[in-house]
Simulated assay, not measured.
Amino acid sequence: MEIKIVNRSKHALPEYATPLSAGLDLRANLSDPVTLKSLERKLIPTGLFIELPEGYEAQIRPRSGLAIKHGISLVNTPGTIDADYRGEIGVIVINLSKEDFVINDGERICQMVIAKHERAEWIEVSELGETDRGAGGFGHTGKK
């Protein structure tokens, strides 16, 4: 799949870390380092602009290494970039640890997964079909 991209960052285009990776690493595009205090969140620019084909979205997800080692995640995960969005990709990063965390220019801050999606058409009915589960949710199956 080919996707149009404008790269206004100081860094190479996003790339897959391994041949079977689902996500492309995105890098911070900063003029100065950004310090995140405990429980603080900030919008981090990437300098990237994309044009997705109709029927696709880009999902922005946390990097597991930053999460386990430093408690760094994303506030709205996965974040969705719609096919009609043309603005810069910004990443809302949050520090869930007790220590300050510094984001440096060029640091890999998240991953982006390109995913196909469907559009739903609602069919209004008076009741839904029965299942074994029914309306049970939020832990109704208990611990195993």
Results as ranks from 00 to 15, higher is better:
G137S: 14
E130Q: 14
R133Y: 09
T131K: 01
E2W: 10
R8F: 14
K4D: 13
V91S: 02
R86V: 13
S97F: 04
S126C: 00
V102A: 00
E107H: 13
T80Y: 03
R27W: 03
K144M: 08
L13E: 13
E107A: 11
E40K: 10
N76A: 12
E2S: 13
I92M: 12
S64N: 11
F101I: 06
Q59L: 14
A12Q: 14
R86E: 11
N104F: 11
S31Y: 10
I81L: 01
G65P: 11
L48T: 11
L43N: 12
S9G: 08
L26Y: 09
I5Q: 03
I5A: 11
I103L: 02
S64E: 09
I92Q: 03
P53N: 09
F101Y: 15
V125C: 00
D105N: 15
G71I: 07
Y16V: 03
S21F: 06
K143R: 15
E51S: 15
R61V: 11
I68P: 00
M1Q: 11
I44K: 00
P14V: 08
I94K: 01
R27C: 08
V6K: 14
F101A: 02
G79M: 03
V91H: 00
D132V: 07
V125R: 02
V34M: 03
V34L: 02
R63Y: 10
G129E: 15
H11V: 07
D32S: 12
E2Q: 14
H11W: 10
E124F: 13
M1E: 13
E130Y: 11
G134W: 09
D84R: 01
S31W: 06
M1T: 14
L96D: 08
G79K: 05
G139M: 01
R41F: 12
H117K: 15
P45G: 06
E99C: 00
E107N: 08
Q111M: 04
S73Y: 12
